[in-house]
Structure formats: structure tokens, C-alpha cells
């Protein structure tokens, strides 16, 4: 084809001269001879460039949070790990890069409207109302978090993966709730409901070979249906009432018992005081008596007389006295109008 024949003008003025010069320049700047040109001019170069570009299009990068799955004519042939890789370019091979570390989230019983941080929620009651054991109804919302466990299984085994997880989650939750008492679900059994639902859900999805790993099933809002909410709340306040009554009773007890103990201490202390004072004063009296007695014994008559006279002397001045002589007074005494004198005294007061 005379490709080496570079000196001939290959374009015959068909192409703009500036391009021609540029090509010449490129050719001259390359130290070896380029096997292009000749009669076909630029076409082979374009073909080669396109070929190179086409081959280069097979280079792809798998990001750290992705897994690469290469399909050859539609058939999955290999999976690749994060990093740079090469596949035969389209249409022979194509690559799919699902995000395998990303945790996806499904809301059941409610939907977040707009931004999740703002937290505006819309209830979906036909998803959230469910029957519990003994035919009670509970209103329950939850979220399911899942991620891809096996990229190939995830991509090729089940259509509509999100809906699959959601449907299975609803079935699993209702199965769990159907086996639980409403009081457990509302109070202490929440963790168990989550765990059981997660286990059942995982089992269902594994049954479909869905390549999905359930990260968590999380109850959001669990409460009785609106129609019976008031009654449930009243039970809660009745519980509070009960606790309050008991507390009040203990309060009463705590008030009266220490008081009683205090009073008890007071009574016994008073009694001790009485006892001691009784004894001490007795001892005092006794001691006094003994001392007087001792002196009295040394001079009986004198002492007796003295004590008597001193007493009379002390007593008589204040007393209203009537002194009667035996010799005269024998007949007089009955006439003494003691009564009248007394009356007068009372009236003048």
C-alpha cells in the first residue's frame, strides 16, 4: 500500500492545509517512521485511535464500597474486588458495580416526607396495625436495614429487591407479633420482637437466595391503636396512682413512727428522772434525819422542846387564833360563833 511513501502528498488538497502541517509535524517529531499515510491518509489513524479508545474503555475502577461483577454477553463470568480492573470492552463485556457496603433502609408503617433530619412522618396504618396473640391489635412501626451479602446473588436472583425485603419484613413482623402478648410488645418484649423478626426475615430471604444480609430490624413507635389509647393511658396513670398511694402511706409511716419513738424516749427519760430524783431526795431526807437524830440523841428533852417552840413561833403568827382557857372556856366554847365569823369573811372578799 506504499505506507512508507511519506513524501507524496496524500490528500490532494482535500483536507485543510493546517491539519496537514500538523500531521507532518507530529510525524517529524516522532523518531521512527509511522506506518500510516499513503493513499488512505487519516482514516487508518482515526481507526487506530478509535480502536485504542475502545480498548481503553475496558478499564474500570471498583470503589472501596463496591463490588464489580463482569458480564460477558449478558452472562456473569467473574466478580472483582475494589481497585482498577480491565474487561473486554462493550459489547462483549459489561461491568456492574453494586454498592455492597451501603446500608439500605426500608420504613414500614410510616414514611418520612422530605428530609429525614426534619423528621416529618406520615403514618401508613394499614401497614402498622397488626393482630397480636389473644386477638388484640397493636400499632407498630419499624425500619429494616439491610445490605448486600452476595453481589451476584443480589443482582441476578430476585427481581425488585426492595419490595422483596419489605414484603418479607411485613410477613416476618406479623408472624412475630402474632405470637406475642400485647403487653410484652408494648413494654419489655421489644428487643425480642426485633430479634425474632430479624431471624425470620433473614431465613425468608435466604430461602429466595436473595444475597441480602439483614443488618437490623428496629421498632420505631409501638403503641396501642388510637381507638383504645385513652384506656391504655389510664392503666398507666392507674399504675402511677397506685405507686403514689403506696408512697403516701410510707410517707405517713415515716412521719408518725419517728415521732412516736421520740415521744417514747421522752417518756422513759422522764421516768428515769423521776426514779432518780425520788431516790436522791429520799437519800437526802434520810441523811438529814439521821444527822438530826444523832444530835437529838445526845440531848433529847432540850432538843425536842426547842424544836417544838421554834415551830410554834414560826407557825402561830400567821394563823387566825382563838385561844381558850380550859377553866373558863369549858362552857363558852359552844357559843363561839365560829360559823358566822367565817361567813362574814367570805362576804367581804
Amino acid at each position: 500500500m506504499g505506507w512508507q511513501d511519506n513524501d507524496k502528498n496524500p490528500w490532494g488538497g482535500q483536507k485543510p492545509p493546517d491539519l496537514k502541517e500538523a500531521i507532518e509535524k507530529i510525524k517529524k517529531s516522532i523518531p521512527f517512521k509511522i506506518p500510516f499515510g499513503g493513499k488512505y491518509g487519516l482514516v487508518p489513524i482515526i481507526v487506530v485511535v478509535l480502536l485504542i479508545l475502545w480498548l481503553a474503555s475496558g478499564i474500570y475502577f471498583v470503589a472501596p464500597d463496591e463490588a464489580g461483577v463482569v458480564k460477558r454477553f449478558g452472562e456473569a463470568v467473574r466478580s472483582t474486588t475494589p481497585g482498577p480492573h480491565y474487561h473486554i470492552p462493550v459489547p462483549v463485556e459489561t461491568v456492574m458495580k453494586p454498592k455492597v457496603t451501603q446500608v439500605r433502609r426500608i420504613e414500614i408503617g410510616f414514611r418520612t416526607i422530605g428530609d429525614r433530619q426534619l423528621g416529618r412522618l406520615r403514618a401508613v396504618t394499614n401497614e402498622s396495625l397488626m393482630l397480636t396473640k389473644a386477638e388484640n391489635i397493636v400499632n407498630l412501626t419499624f425500619i429494616v436495614q439491610y445490605k448486600i451479602k452476595d453481589a451476584i446473588a443480589y443482582l441476578f436472583n430476585v427481581k425488585n429487591q426492595d419490595k422483596t425485603v419489605k414484603d418479607a419484613a411485613e410477613a416476618a413482623m406479623r408472624e412475630t407479633v402474632g405470637e406475642s402478648e400485647i403487653d410484652d410488645i408494648l413494654t419489655t418484649g421489644k428487643f425480642k420482637v426485633q430479634q425474632d423478626t430479624k431471624a425470620i426475615l433473614q431465613k425468608i430471604l435466604d430461602g429466595y437466595n436473595a444475597g441480602i444480609h439483614i443488618v437490623a430490624v428496629q421498632l420505631q413507635d409501638v403503641h396501642p391503636p388510637a381507638q383504645v389509647m385513652a384506656a391504655f393511658k389510664d392503666v398507666a396513670s392507674a399504675k402511677e396512682d397506685k405507686a403514689k398511694m403506696v408512697n403516701d402511706a410510707y410517707g405517713y409511716r415515716n412521719e408518725i413512727l419517728p415521732k412516736a419513738k421520740g415521744k417514747s424516749a421522752q417518756i422513759t427519760n422522764d421516768a428515769v428522772a423521776y426514779k432518780e430524783s425520788k431516790i436522791i431526795s429520799a437519800e437526802g431526807d434520810a441523811s438529814r434525819f439521821m444527822q438530826i437524830l444523832a444530835e437529838y440523841r445526845t440531848a433529847r428533852e432540850v432538843t425536842k422542846k426547842r424544836l417544838y417552840i421554834e415551830m410554834m413561833e414560826k407557825v402561830l403568827p400567821g394563823v387566825d387564833k382563838v385561844i381558850v382557857d380550859d377553866k373558863i372556856g369549858k362552857n363558852m366554847l359552844p357559843h363561839l360563833s365560829l360559823g358566822r365569823e367565817l361567813d362574814k369573811k367570805i362576804n367581804t372578799k
Binding site: Y308, I309, M312, V315, L316, G318, V319, D320, K321, V322, I323, V324, D325, D326, G329, L333, L336, L338, L342
Partner: peptide, 16 residues
């Protein structure tokens, strides 16, 4: 024997 006690005393009492 406090104040205002009425006391009738025989003159034969040892005190007299």
C-alpha cells in the same frame, strides 16, 4: 397551818 387558818388552841397546850 397557813395564814387565815382558824386555830382554836387550848391554853393548856404545852406552848402556853
Amino acid at each position: 397551818l397557813k395564814k387565815d387558818t382558824k386555830l382554836v388552841i387550848n391554853l393548856n397546850a404545852p406552848f402556853f
